[in-house]
Design a protein around this nucleic acid. Sequence first.
RNA 1: GGUCCUGUGGCCGAGUGGUUAGGCUCAGCUCUGCAAAAGCUGCUACUCCAGUUCGAACCUGGACGGGACCUCCA
Length: 487
Amino acid sequence: MEKLFIYNTLSRTKEEFKAINAPFLGMYVCGPTVYSDVHLGNCRTFMSFDIIYRYLTHIGYKVRYVRNITDAGHLESDGDVGEDKISKKAKLAQLEPMEIVQTYTVGFRDVMNLFNALPPSIEPTATGHIIEQQEIAKQIIANGLAYEHNGTVYFDVDKYAKSNNYTVLTNRKLEELLENTRDLDGQDEKRSRLDFALWIKAKPEHLMKWPSPWGVGFPGWHIECSAMSTKYLGEQFDIHGGGMDLQATHHTNEIAQNIAYCGKSPANYWLHTNMLTVNGQKMSKSLGNSFLPMELFTGNHPLLNKGFTPMAVRFFMMQTHYRSTLDFSNDALEAAEKAFNKLMESYKTLQTLIASGSSSEDVKAIERSCYDAMNDDFNTPVLISKLFDAIRLINSAYDKKSTVTKEDIALLQSIYQHFVFDVMGLKKEEETGKSNTALEQVMNLVLDLRAKAKANKDFATSDEIRNKLTEAHIQVKDGKEGVTWSI
RNA sequence: GGUCCUGUGGCCGAGUGGUUAGGCUCAGCUCUGCAAAAGCUGCUACUCCAGUUCGAACCUGGACGGGACCUCCA
């Protein structure tokens, strides 16, 4: 098996990866909250972990990939301010919370599918694991690290921090955290400002609520992940992932919960993916620069000149390492789209290569460097640069400037299969409209006429046809092997 | 305000104490009736200041800029 190095947030260094029970491997990734459309930032995180999942699988691990759906805990109106609005709206066309959940869960899966992300092995929901969450809260109370106050159960951070490193993930000092904590609702119920809720008493207007030993309520924000990761991957597993914004609060509390529950830190390796910016600025609705995936595909957005295919976007994301911020801009997307098309064109060229008896190229070295790139903390930008070495090699062999053997060609095929299709999860875009046979027949007719004009050296006619087609956004390409066209 | 991350050529974006990242753009060439498309070749950068070093864009310190988190958030 490949020797793989992964950047572990726990140690802030790249560590050699060792699975607890190879070849089996458990990976948990914090999934989306399904109360609104997935935005691109979410997609980027899940695409990053899709590559990680695919590569781990490729090098021989039997991965159980668990990614939750958060469908409970946040339906409450925004405290005191929002209550009025809610009651006004509630009169007409009130939706069941689970209708919202269903709508956005389906939407999320559809988008991930468009991006060719593999579904996780298990996709558990918070509402499906209320009992498990309560059990964990009970055990933490029994272990003396949580307390109930007026129907709400709080985690006792102070007490926990006396015998554990609460801030393992962030390296922050507890005193400094305390100084910087703001005043929030329910602060007076807590023993310490850092304490967080495992179970929350439901207000009467709260829509999703369940009975519990502490009264009717709903689970806290962090406990679902502790419950579901423990249930499906065990008390200790290999990899836990999520966006960097989850690191300081959600993951910190998750680790504390697990240790308070069973004395074990849940995951050996914590991976965090970086955020997404637009033209150098944070993506946010207030700045008017947030993208929905569909806006990206259709180009229906003020910041875009045109739409981009899901695969072009996927490729674009792969060009940046998962731990760097990814900046969206029209120019960068266009550049990535061209590069992606080149990668796919070269695959076609590869199919036409003719083998020589000897080889002037070292294809094995390219394959090796692809593995080296991925083994170095899943470095897809470097992987892509190595693939472009392969492209140059393919083109030069095609131009008869170099020679490749039958084995080389087979190896190039396998590099494409393994790295481009299996690991990066790229695929050829569907041909535009399968039912376009009518258009095709017309185009054949037109191009046939143009060919005849050219044969008669009637360039005025042939150029006119070409120009008119260009105006209609149809590009004519006079290749060596005949004329092709694209829209 | 606090903690942490970051600053690379026209643009995007890897990386390393001394040796070409890669893509896009651009220029030249090949091909072409001419274009386009495609291919080839070229374009040598690392915010600023000081230090460590034989040698730093890469290490250290400082300045300035950008970002994340501290509040639901991928």
